[in-house]
Design a binder for these strands. Structure first.
Lengths: 216, 216, 216, 216
DNA sequence: CATGAATGAGAATTCATTCAT
DNA sequence: CATGAATGAATTCTCATTCAT
């Protein structure tokens, strides 16, 4: 830890206005770009600095370690996804199935607010999570949040359709896996699956499953 | 110098008998262990050699580069999966749905012939495929083969059920993604999804979808 | 990362002042010393660093590769020789034969501005040029420049002596070869040829040949 | 030193006839090829073995070390040159100038008995001599022998022309240097000097110099 | 004689991190 | 805040040499 280095957001003292927040964002963005293009192993501090137009020394002024930048990146990807979901949720209204589809769309749709770099980076992060406890914790937390929300959304659909909710967990697991798997295939073996297959397919899968569940 | 492929069975000149095949297998196995525990970036030649109880120099005697060992590992994982599938297929008989379930089981089941290291390694390989063309090619080839086989198996099920086969591609894509995603979640965020969820869930999903397809 | 060329004189942002130029010179000088004593193959990065009193890492901070240091060394040797020639040329005045002798002297004389390491290094570089294209290009360029200049100087002498210039090329070739050969013999088999033989011998050779050429 | 390894030529005991002599020649030839194409640093035991169609282990059965192969190569190059000279000398008869030209021709001519690999190898050996005492000794011995013979041949020419022999040494030194330099330039910067320039030029130089020497 | 596995001491190069300016 | 030199530990890979078979 560099003593005195600015890790917080607030700046009580005046003087030269701090650009820490923007610099950190800029660095995280550069990491996102490099990771998505080259993978984590090649995302050296020097490469990230070059991408950001900064120096390696400065990166270490704003972040104590390379790991810390990765953590910030994960947080940012999760936050962006959350924004995407909230936007779609607001448009979805109260209908449970629309709300579930909003979740699916937020994850797979390639709308104007989509960042193609994010998918590749997310795949890399999943692999990195296999071994870095700190990354694993963040990744796990993100998945747990997704899983729980998904469960709730699925259960609401089942309930609205007058079906038993005992399969909520399984449907949620299948959806979550399919999303993560689609990311992965798309990033690591592009072209294997047709573009845009995911959203309509998953909607169709949801419908089929709900119809086939027994009544409550 | 990587020794060439075994030059046949006859050995006119005497000399030291070759143990290349076993050594290569031993090295690949060590890579599998290390990758599954530590990820590719930490799977240094030294670490793999240590795991195998060999010297780093010897690894380079049998493989020209670290990459080449990874390639051999991918080939081995694919071959093992194929074996698992063929075994289950033989038991499945002619019933189309049983054959499709054989495919699912070969991919997710954790039977006696399952190697828990393989899942973690496969996740790492997918991430590595994002940037190493040679790895990507192998990974892509494996997925393409899976996708095509899956498509055929799904279409056979639909046909046997008297349904239209127009959704074969989508169902195959969903299954493949779910499998890849399940691997990933299982390896990178263990505990997020319940143990053993996958096989029954995917079977259920298949059944539901087939039932909901329109008649041919 | 090799730092780029000095970015001019102005320095808007403050920060650590660059010492790249001196460091690079220091490293090249250390390579010169080591190569002249041990040959290129033994001029390892570690050996050069030790000679320079620096760390191996720092050498790679200032030069991207070992090759690049060698290239800088060749450039420096060529530049030094050029200086030596220009100095002598200034003293030689306008007399063509004096100007040609200035060239000879610049190449063979062991005056105050001579660096005994340079001869041994130049021999090694010639051998290295046999296989490294980049070194060969530099070496070839140096020889071509020498050959062309020599040709001009020789032709001027012949003309001033009222002789045909048709042998200019041959005389230049003989002189250039004799110089390169003298370097080589001197460095690789010291003592075989008497000290200081070259300058008077080559002058004598020039005189004899010019006298024996037919009149223009 | 491998005890019992065959280093001598005679083989008193009968049994499998020794192929040591041919094997050694084959290995030396392979070294010549590799050195001329790649330089000494890249002439690894493995590369030489590959070129010879043998194994690295076998090379070490026939030679105790890499150095020893190089020594054998130098000896062979010197021996071949001597053969070339003797052949031409036999054709030259008793005329001193013809005998001197025979020496020049043996060194520069590209006759049927010339091995283009030898020139490049000789250049590399000269560089290697800068640092390897054993190589330097051989190289020096070869040059001393050449120098002395040349001196005698030159003196005989001067005497036959009724000139003073006091410049014999210088002329010999100039010729030797020119030859070594021509080798070097030809190998390291091919194309800089015109093909076939050397023989006629050196003859011309010899003639001019002899004519210009004062009478005895 | 011959093969080919095995070793171990480097080799160049990379890179996160520190720190003087 | 920012620069850029400097470090030192790793990392991949090379290669002469040894030796069991």
């Amino acid at each position: 830890m560099t003593p005195g280095a600015p890790r917080g957001e607030t700046c009580v003292k005046m003087g030269r206005p701090s650009n820490t927040a923007e610099r950190r964002a800029q660095i995280v963005d550069a990491l996102l770009t490099v990771v998505s293009k080259e993978g984590y192993a090649r995302a050296t501090i020097a490469a990230v600095a070059r991408e950001a137009g900064l120096t390696a020394g400065l990166l270490h002024y704003h972040f104590a370690s390379k790991q810390e930048i990765l953590v910030a990146l994960v947080e940012r990807l999760v936050a962006r996804l959350e924004e995407r979901f909230q936007t779609r949720l607001a448009e979805a209204g109260d209908e449970p199935r629309a709300r579930l589809f909003a979740w699916v769309d937020a994850h797979v749709a390639l709308g104007a607010d989509a960042d193609p770099r994010a998918v590749a980076a997310w795949v890399v992060i999943g692999a990195e999570a296999v071994r870095e406890p700190e990354v694993r914790d963040l990744y796990t937390a993100a998945l747990v949040a997704s899983r729980d929300r998904l469960r709730t959304l699925v259960a609401a659909c089942l309930r609205a359709a007058g079906r038993s909710t005992r399969s909520s967990d399984r449907i949620a697991a299948a959806l979550l896996s399919a999303i993560e798997g689609a990311y992965r295939v798309n990033a690591a073996a592009p072209g294997v699956l047709a573009d845009g297959w995911a959203a309509p397919t998953l909607r169709r899968m949801i419908d089929a499953w709900i119809e086939s569940e027994p009544a409550r």
